[in-house]
Simulated assay, not measured.
Amino acid sequence: MGDNARIIVADDHPLFREALQQALAPTMPGVSFVEAESFESLQAAVESCEDPDLVLLDLEMPGAQGFSVLTWLRSQHPALPVVLVSATSDAAVMRRAVDLGAAGFIPKSSTVDTISEAISAVLEGEIWLPEAALALDDAQLSEDKELARKVASLTPQQFRVLDMLADGLLNKQIAAELEVSEATVKAHVTAIFRKLGVRSRTQAAVAARRIESTTRPHA
């Protein structure tokens, strides 16, 4: 594990951020941490942190839904490894994250040794997943993988439009929420339809709900 690593810890729970840092510091000499509690503060942290080595990203980051933060990081900072940290232990969610460009996925229930092992592997350029995700049959993921590829092509703004569209909001309402013109929203919707390969708002909403369902632990 590299010395003097700079790690951005993005999670809205301050106690978890503190616990993670206390757990990792003894195994990573010289490591420094930058904290972020929302998508907005994460954007600022990535821009202000000099040569960060890794982002530890909570899957449920305030300010954006689902995988949109990961999508933004991969498009804007493709060389920066991102490891998702989440309460979910759903193997399909973990594999979906890697399909979208994550360098790893660590369940929050993991031991300190496991977290340390995962981060060490990622800093060495590897992809790290728990055994359950590695054992998942690829055939189970083929359809989801294709949808993930399409969703990964959306910009963060398009992802937000898609989420609102799935909630049944009209273009006028989406425009008001995002403080943009209706023409801009229409352009986004057209682009979303094209990228997802759908022809209606209903079909787009179904795709959005499939993505959203994978970001929640199954009952």
Rank of each mutant, 00 (worst) to 15 (best):
M1K: 10
N4K: 13
I7R: 00
I8E: 09
V9N: 13
V9W: 11
D11Y: 01
L24D: 07
L24T: 07
P26V: 01
G30A: 14
S32R: 15
S32G: 06
F33G: 13
L42E: 08
Q43T: 12
D51I: 03
L57G: 02
L57I: 00
M61K: 04
P62W: 00
F67V: 00
S68T: 14
V69W: 04
L70C: 09
L73V: 02
H77A: 07
P81T: 01
V82I: 09
S86D: 03
S89C: 10
D90F: 11
G101P: 01
A102Y: 04
A103W: 05
A103K: 05
A103Q: 05
F105A: 03
F105E: 06
P107F: 04
T114D: 13
T114G: 06
S116M: 00
I119Q: 06
L123N: 04
E126L: 09
E131C: 09
L134E: 13
L136M: 02
D137M: 07
D138W: 08
A139L: 07
Q140D: 07
L141A: 07
L147N: 10
A148D: 08
V151S: 09
T155P: 02
Q158D: 09
Q158Y: 09
F159G: 03
D163L: 02
D167M: 15
L178P: 08
S181Y: 13
V185K: 05
K186R: 14
K186C: 11
A187P: 03
H188K: 06
V189Q: 13
I192K: 00
L196C: 14
A204N: 09
A205K: 08
R209V: 00
R209C: 06
R210S: 04
R210F: 13
E212S: 15
S213H: 10
H218D: 08
H218Y: 11
